[in-house]
């Protein structure tokens, strides 16, 4: 490659890198703003909007219970089907609960719950806020001295983080139970044995790291969705682009963060 071609490649990489840094910076700025407004809402007027927060919890979290339970049930069942032959080969089929629980509690439960929630809550938030920007509603809030971060972002962030953790707990239990269903119905493993094996195998670390990660996933989902939604430009097309971008970027960031935190917990705990 010629000298000029190298320069072009370097320029493009640099521009991409700058874009990524600007994006992460924007997200970080919004996060700091959110924490500031949330903290202020606890101590001074105007107060935290508790009604709105509960409303968002129901909308973003409670309504996602059936879909997350169903998805996680199938994940657990698939896991049992996949691992049973391997364990049988080593004569360890009675340890099925150990591998299923060890896969679901720290990893698959939180991760898949978060991915489903990205499509469920993240897309909804991005589309909603984007439509509000296009309809001048956000400008109307700002010019009536109502801060959009306090009014719109803070309730959604609290609701989404709390509900992601809660849904991860549900996902863990349903997923492991899904494995148990296959173990009982197909493989003939005693349900009590399955339950006790799972409980014995799980460490506090497995449960806690999974839930800590799911809190971080929830934060990623809602921050990306709010950021994309509030930065919409260009009408209906812009809202569509923001919705797509928020789902794709949130899933990418969730999987990246999962890898990073799993590695971190591997070394420090």
């Amino acid at each position: 490659m010629s000298h000029a071609a190298w320069v072009r490649v370097l320029e493009r990489v640099g521009a991409q890198g700058e874009g990524l840094l600007a994006y992460l910076g924007g997200l970080g700025y919004l996060a700091v703003d959110t924490v500031w407004h949330a903290a202020r809402g606890v101590f001074t007027r105007p107060r935290l909007k508790t009604d709105e927060t509960f409303f968002q919890m129901v909308r973003l979290g409670v309504r996602a219970v059936p879909i997350i339970a169903l998805v996680q049930l199938f994940v657990g069942m698939t896991l049992a089907f996949t691992l049973a032959p391997v364990l049988e080969m080593y004569g360890q089929l009675d340890q099925l609960a150990t591998v299923v629980a060890k896969a679901i509690f720290p990893q698959l439960g939180p991760l898949i719950a978060a991915v489903v929630l990205t499509g469920f809550a993240g897309a909804a938030i991005a589309a909603e806020l984007g439509t509000m920007v296009v309809g001048e509603e956000v400008a109307a809030l700002r010019t009536s001295a109502i801060h959009p971060v306090r009014f719109l972002v803070v309730p959604r962030v609290i609701a989404c983080v709390v509900m992601t953790v809660a849904l991860a707990v549900l996902a863990n239990i349903v997923g492991t139970a899904g494995g148990g269903l296959v173990a009982y119905l197909i493989l003939g493993i005693d349900p009590y044995h399955y339950y006790h094996t799972a409980v014995e195998a799980l460490l506090v670390k497995d449960v806690v790291t999974g839930l800590v990660k799911s809190g971080i996933f929830g934060l990623i989902i809602v921050m990306v969705a709010c950021y994309e939604g509030l930065n919409v430009s260009g009408g209906a097309g812009g809202v569509g682009r923001a919705t797509t971008a928020s789902v794709v970027r949130a899933i990418f960031l969730i999987i990246t963060a999962n890898c990073a935190f799993t590695a971190l917990f591997y070394f420090v705990w």
Partner: peptide, 20 residues
């Protein structure tokens, strides 16, 4: 700026009502 904004009202072209 927010204190100033509390002393004026704005009618937007589309009305800009909060749709929810």
């Amino acid at each position: 700026l927010n204190r100033l904004r509390q002393r004026f009202g704005i009618l937007f072209q589309s009305g800009a009502l909060y749709s929810s």
